[in-house]
Amino acid sequence: MGWFKRSPWVLHYNATSCNGCDIEVIVSLTPLYDLERFGIINTGNPKHADILAVTGSVNEKSRQVLLNLYEQMPNPKVVVAVGLCATSGCVFQDCYNVLGGVDKVLPVDVYVPGCAARPESIIDGILKACEILEEKYSQRKKTGYPAAKE
């Protein structure tokens, strides 16, 4: 892992998670695990965020919210699916109101396994997301800025 030029901010959204992964996302940002030492902080505003950490599988209603949040984030952006529910649906994949993993709705860059995902693996996942973010930035420098989507 190299050093980053930027300090990306994380936006966290709970799309039908059971709360377990949400707590672990918060815990990974607090003193014992301390994701903040990498310059990463939790933000509540999608317009300030570079990384979207989604926990939980997606249902009909949270799907619109998730898309809305994703569209509000500035480019380039990275999506991290935290926990088994976000990757596949976990025990809930047979439920009538569950669509499945987050990748049914958004393009996911990093999958973090675990039920609930451990803070260590969340930190790993978010650092991986930072690398992808760096890559996306350098890609953009090479190819030039893509025209804004209508």
Partner: peptide, 13 residues
Amino acid sequence: YRTAIKTPFSIEN
């Protein structure tokens, strides 16, 4: 409740 299927606990479902 806005669910993917209507009235998921009704007799038919």
